[in-house]
Amino acid sequence: MLQIYGSMATPEPENDKPMTDKILEVIDLKKYFPIKQGVFSRTVNNVKAVDGVDFSIIPGETLGLVGESGCGKTTLGRTILRLQEPTAGKIIFENQDICKLNNADMRILRREMQIIFQDPYGSLNPRMTVGDIIGEPFDIHGLAAGEKRQVNVHELLEVVGLKADHITRYPHEFSGGQRQRIVIARGLALRPKLIICDESVSALDVSIQAQILNLLKTLQKQFNLTYLFIAHDLSVVKHISDRIAVMYLGKLVEIARKDELYNSPCHPYTKALLSAIPIPRPGARKSDFLLEGDVPSPVDPPHGCRFHTRCPVMEDLCRQTAPELVDIGDRHFCACHKQKAAGH
């Protein structure tokens, strides 16, 4: 364990302590988007973007969430912050079901949880200076004004590696990587405990991506942050995460510590995902476990196991019942009938 949590100042989280040790727990979370048709806008069907997801995060940890486009990972991130209201399920943040909070209480709680979006061009107001962007959280929450606000903004700029004279400039004067630093500074302003990074480095070039990844890691140690790191790039997720959750068509199919997930993946989808990643070393391809076909539509997901239409080891059972996410040992969760049968 020590290896994984490194020099972080968090107490050893793995002991059999009760639920209080979890900073965030998501229970059977669902988010459906209705499809409306006809004159009376009747709901004819639902896009089941997130369809029954359970997981938890412990303080100081980074949970990576991977999956292909359309699997619902972004919706999951947004629903956890209640930027979109969940259709069903519970979101427990520090022993409090946040779905029950009213708007005023929710606003106060938002100090504790922040999000960093993918596109640093779309997430900064072009008419505000960098100083105002980073200082705005203080204004909204009435936490600092005047000189104190100024001092805080300067401090935040320094923390994310920007210069003090950037304070009066506008977002268009910055490159993508620098903009993402501004977004991170804004996210850090209220000293949140949980930060959801939604594809935060995907739009950046590799050399800039590495800078931001390193910055996120440094900040995590400095401020004892907990990350939910959403991305489609498994190499990036593996680099930054302690544990990784794999999502397919609105459901989690596997959660495990990163080394375990990489060394002994259990779900066929995880295996396929791992073998599909091109490795930047000539002649390094491990296996040819390639998937056929495309991801089915989330409007009408396949019955039984959602992956059965593309699964190379599918059986009759998979077509009929959906597998549960079960612990196969050492907090390694997997949702696959074949795994149970194998008596893992």
Partner: peptide, 24 residues
């Protein structure tokens, strides 16, 4: 050299990536 150091590799673990300072 910098470019190769900047990419996280799925089959290796490291604490920090080596980076190329600055921007294009």
């Amino acid at each position: 050299e910098g470019l190769l150091g900047s990419i996280p590799k799925i089959d290796e673990s490291c604490e920090m990536l080596t980076t190329i300072e600055g921007v294009v």
